[in-house]
Amino acid sequence: MEIIVGKDLFSKLQKFLNKYNKKSIYIITDENVAKIHLKSLISYLSTFHVRVYVLKPGEKSKSLDIVEDIYEDLIENKYDRSTTILSLGGGVVGDISGFVASTYLRGVDYIQIPTTLLAQVDSSIGGKVGLDFGKYKNMIGSFYFPIANFIDVKLLNTLDKRELTSGLGEIIKYGIIKDYDFLKYVTKNTRRIYDCDEDVLLNIVKKSVSIKSQVVNKDERDLGIRRILNFGHTIGHGIESLFGFNTYNHGEAVILGMMYETYISKEMGLIDDEYFNEIIINLINLMPNKPNIETGDSSLSRIINIISHDKKNVDGNIVFVLPVGRGEVEIFDDIDIGLIKNSLKGDWL
């Protein structure tokens, strides 16, 4: 897989498609992205056979019903195994595009063109594709890598603050799990990130892609070290599901998950108070409001039930990734349920 990080990459995409004789192009995007970027992309594809499928934006589009509709459209328009699917959008579009590519005619090529900071630094890297099923996130899916990933930081200029925050959560995660100096760089340059300073964006996207790629290359199937990338995701996915994927977007839920899981780490004596406070302050400063999670027994039990069905669990045990030092985490599967509930109550915030 080729990963190209830079600016103004549509012309390079055009050359890539010509080089590998890709003529039959099927673009999957969503309504928001289509309004901003689709016309420009298509202007570079005038010599190709192109069709576009436009999704409703949001997590609810990650469903079997949408995928079935895409299959029907592909079949009706006689797209065969020479088809290349272009994913133009954020994580939802990328997950759907990759899932369709991995299953249509037993697999066709696809290319990622991520348009959100979160997708550029996380979901477009690593080959995970999938759908939500009921209240469970990414329960159906596979590992299927794109043939190329064109990560263009110029596409980030139109994002609002909430979308940038969503990506920043995953970026800070990389610093916590792997590179403390990177964590300090990101927190020092947060304002420039929100201002879409292209030099800073290029630096943080390249570094994030490098960290994730190094981890993924050691464990493509998510059975070992790759699981450290799930820091914040155990509780984060539970929060997303609890609110029906409506109240918090993925990045915001991961930020909350990292906060609660860092509290668990401190209570277990894995990190000192100074590092705990550093992480929590960096994360809570990203959130416009204090977390609004009901902490009655019913809500807590529902979150515990959701995370107990998390696909990352092993032998019925809930798996957590917890900080154990600056830029270092470890994997645990024996966390006391009472401690998890205490973290979620948020009395310590």
Rank of each mutant, 00 (worst) to 15 (best):
E2H: 03
K12Y: 06
F16G: 01
N18F: 10
I27Y: 02
N32P: 00
L38N: 10
L38E: 11
K39T: 11
S40C: 00
L41Q: 06
L41C: 03
Y44G: 00
F48S: 14
F48K: 15
R51Q: 15
V52Y: 05
L55A: 04
K60D: 15
D69M: 02
E72C: 00
D80N: 15
R81C: 11
T84Y: 01
I85P: 08
G90H: 02
G94P: 01
D95I: 12
S97L: 05
V100F: 05
T103M: 10
Q112C: 13
T116G: 09
D122I: 14
K128G: 14
D132M: 04
G134W: 11
G134Q: 04
K135V: 15
K137N: 07
G141H: 10
G141V: 08
I147M: 07
A148I: 02
N149K: 13
I151D: 10
L155H: 01
T158D: 08
D160Q: 06
D160G: 15
E163R: 12
E170A: 14
I172W: 00
I172Y: 09
Y174S: 07
Y174R: 10
V186N: 12
N189T: 11
N189P: 12
T190F: 06
C196P: 02
L201M: 13
L202F: 01
V205G: 10
K212M: 07
K212H: 09
S213P: 01
K218D: 01
E220V: 13
R226W: 08
R227W: 06
N230P: 11
G232A: 11
H233E: 10
I235E: 02
G236T: 12
F243R: 05
F245T: 07
H250K: 09
G257K: 03
M258R: 09
M259W: 05
M259D: 01
T262R: 05
T262I: 09
E267F: 03
M268G: 06
L270V: 02
L270F: 13
F276V: 11
N277F: 02
N282Y: 04
L286C: 12
N292A: 15
T295N: 14
G296K: 00
S298E: 15
L300M: 12
R302C: 00
I306N: 05
G316H: 11
I318E: 10
P323R: 03
P323L: 05
G325V: 01
G325Y: 05
E328K: 15
F332W: 09
D333I: 00
D333P: 00
S343D: 12
L344S: 12
K345N: 00
L349N: 00
